[in-house]
């Protein structure tokens, strides 16, 4: 299944891993902060309505 990358396997694989990691990290951070802000806001709005 793995394609034969020849002598450049390290370069190709590392660039894929690094890029996907970077995208994953930034996406994770965005989602995490989105959730955190949404939770705090919901709590505050609930407290104010009550």
């Amino acid at each position: 299944m793995m394609p034969d990358l020849g002598k450049y396997a390290l370069e190709v694989n590392s660039s894929y891993v690094l890029s996907l990691m970077a995208l994953g990290v930034i996406a994770g951070l965005y989602v995490k902060r989105n959730r955190a802000v949404r939770r705090v806001l919901a709590e505050l709005e609930a407290a104010q309505d009550a």
């Binding site: 020849g6 450049y8 396997a9 370069e11 190709v12 660039s15 894929y16």
Partner: peptide, 9 residues
Amino acid sequence: GSTVKIIYL
């Protein structure tokens, strides 16, 4: 060689 695959990123 296979480094051309980096282009997709």
